[in-house]
Design a binder for these strands. Structure first.
Length: 573
RNA sequence: CGGGGCGUGGCGCAGUCUGGUAGCGCACUCGGUUUGGGUCCGAGAGGUCCCCGGUUCGAAUCCGGGCGCCCCGACCA
């Protein structure tokens, strides 16, 4: 029963005033979703159909690699989260029951699945395993945004693999790469699989699946076969010319010039001829020490790569800390830094051209020119900068594209099997830790990304694999008119042929019906009106590009009409 | 966590500065009209003006407190 006159599809002419993202505006306008709180959304019937289609594709491909679907609870005892050290996460919703016992709302399911596997798996004969579910996740996001793109409650498919060793994990990981590639391909989205940060999840390898679109929150670096999240991307820097270095650094007066831009302008140099000094504090337990990070003046420090290079998290040093150890903020540099402050020099500088850089002098209103790394200060080298437009990889320029993360795959290793005691006995009877992987993908983000990527002025344009219905049948004419009767017969024919069809049988003018159809975005619109009925045909509009396709013969045998429709369908994006 | 903005029928907004019985467009109901791109005419229904407190004869409007929502940044397991 999908007569529009009886269906809950609350379309709106105007988008919510505060909506920015295309998918946010259009999904609300098309009657797919409604908000009930910040980052808390209801999927209305038509929207849920799309979500379910994405979920079905995911299920099929997970099943195909041997995944076993199950369902784990969202409400969980705090105890297991304490054991893995994740109870303190700010995004984790915490609550108590009437007895005062601590509970959490799960934001992911490593704790639950590993707990079960730890209890149930005893032998190497029980491995490997691929377990998955589609379940609600709860995350107390600091800032939900852009409709359904970043919410506090959302459904995720998360799968978990359990193997005897690293080699097994590698196999399970590769199976997921295949499944995820096929999922992405089937959704009809434009997508990239990129190298990514292993993050605080811990682990040894990770990829993200990214769908390029304006509302995305990530930047993807691309060049030839290379694809990486900008958080981890590396590239050769654009060239910079340096002035020849004198015998020793020379002081130069730079009154009140505290920024790279101002100093470069005053000295008539490019920003790349300066060194930017970025002091950070590394806190390890009670201990804390300062590290002075140096990047080229036109480059930015990359926090993720920095953490990797330091082997620890760090924070920018506060003004008073800088003052106490290095001198006045804005004029600090690497020459003659106190004992105990390590200097971390970015690879782009260390491997760059010879010559003299300009750095702060460590004294107010003064810089040094002709500073040569290695001669004037010693350092440790690491790649800690964010790549930028103009960089190259193997001689080819990189491009940086905005994208939304719709899936990710992680090699966890023994990060969770260890605290939760997930072990097995090998052939020799020795107890071994289970090697795990974890793999997520969000149907809601697939849905929103499809809207973002293919929408036009008129509204949504679904890829056929995700569309809530294949065919949007519009009838014109008054109730009781020949057009209406012909449309009714066509509707029955389509239903009989197994076509998923939304039938707009409302008593509205043609303008409103066409506008709604294009807003909702089903791949094909069939129109039964007086004009085409005279020639015994049904008009066909292809939503993508809004092009008229050859009309279908209305008077023909049902099989003939259905076959023609199917042929048209197979050719759609 | 820092910055900015907003809360008035389902949606989009005016009214707030300068206090005086709450309005517009769309949508909705009824009657008519129209039927190939959001038709037109007429008659209606629908609102704790986010909440609490204060000032005042009188508060959507002024004052105090709270809550909610959006955007930018930080963050994002």
């Amino acid at each position: 029963m999908t007569r529009l006159s009886q269906y809950l599809l609350p379309t709106e002419k105007e988008a919510p005033a505060d909506a920015e993202a295309i998918s946010h505006k259009l999904m609300v306008r098309a009657g797919l979703i409604r908000q009930i709180g910040a980052g808390i959304w209801t999927w209305l019937p038509a929207g849920w159909r799309v979500h379910q289609r994405a979920a079905a594709i995911i299920r099929e491909e997970l099943d195909a690699i041997g995944g076993q679907e199950m369902l784990m609870p969202v409400l969980q005892p705090a105890e297991v989260w304490r054991r893995t050290g994740r109870y303190g996460i700010d995004e984790l919703f915490k609550l108590q029951d009437r007895k005062g016992a601590d509970l959490v709302l799960a934001m992911t399911h490593e704790e639950a699945v590993t707990t079960h596997v730890a209890q149930v798996v005893r032998s190497y004969r029980d491995l490997p395993l691929i377990l998955y579910h589609l379940q609600v996740k709860e995350r107390d996001e600091p800032r939900p945004r852009a409709g359904v793109l970043r919410t506090r409650e959302f459904i995720m498919k998360d799968s978990y693999t359990f193997d005897r060793d690293a080699a097994g994990l590698e196999e399970r990981y590769e199976l997921h790469v295949g499944a995820y590639d096929r999922i992405m391909q089937r959704t009809g989205l434009r997508w990239y699989r990129v190298e990514s940060d292993v993050g605080m999840m811990g682990g040894s390898g990770a990829h993200e699946y990214m769908a390029p679109c304006a509302a995305g929150e990530n930047d993807v670096v691309l060049s030839g076969d290379y694809a990486a999240n900008i958080e981890v991307a590396s590239a050769e820097p654009a060239a910079v010319t340096l002035p020849e270095a004198p015998e020793a650094p020379e002081a130069v007066s730079t009154p009140s010039l505290t920024t790279v831009r101002d100093v470069a302008a005053a000295l008539g140099l490019s920003e790349g001829a300066l060194l930017k000094a970025y002091p950070v504090i590394v806190e390890a337990g009670e201990e804390s020490h300062m590290v002075l990070v140096l990047v080229r003046g036109d480059h930015q420090v990359n926090e993720v790569k920095l953490a990797l290079a330091l082997g620890a998290q760090s924070r920018p040093a506060r003004a008073e800390e800088i003052e106490a150890q290095l001198g006045p903020p804005g004029f600090i540099g690497p020459v003659a830094v106190p004992e105990g402050i390590e200097i971390l020099l970015d690879h782009a500088v260390a491997s760059g051209p010879h010559g003299g850089y300009v750095t702060g002098a460590g004294r107010t209103d003064e810089h040094l020119r002709g500073v040569v790394p290695g001669r004037d200060f010693s350092f440790r080298e690491a790649d800690v900068r964010t790549v930028a437009a103009g960089d190259t990889i193997g001689g080819a320029p990189i491009t940086i594209e905005r994208a939304i993360e719709i899936g990710n795959i992680f090699k966890l290793g023994t990060r969770y099997s260890e605290p939760l005691g997930a072990k097995y006995l090998d052939e020799q009877g020795r107890e071994q830790l289970i090697w795990m992987g974890s793999y997520g993908i969000g149907p809601a983000r697939i849905t929103a990304a499809a809207v973002e990527q293919f929408a036009d002025e008129q509204g949504i344009s679904w890829p056929r694999s995700l569309s809530p219905w294949g065919v949007h049948l519009v009838t014109l004419g008054k109730p009781g008119s020949p057009e209406r009767e012909a449309a009714e017969r066509l509707y029955e024919t389509l239903l009989g042929g197994g076509v998923e069809v939304l039938y707009d049988d409302r008593e509205l003018g043609p303008g409103e019906k066409f506008a709604d159809a294009e807003l909702l975005g089903c791949p094909l619109r069939l129109t039964v009106g007086r004009r085409s009925l005279e020639s015994g045909e049904v008009e066909v509009q292809v939503r993508r590009g809004r092009e008229q396709a050859p009309p279908l013969p209305l008077a023909a045998e049902p099989q003939e009409l259905l076959a023609a429709l199917d042929e048209l369908w197979q050719g759609l994006p």
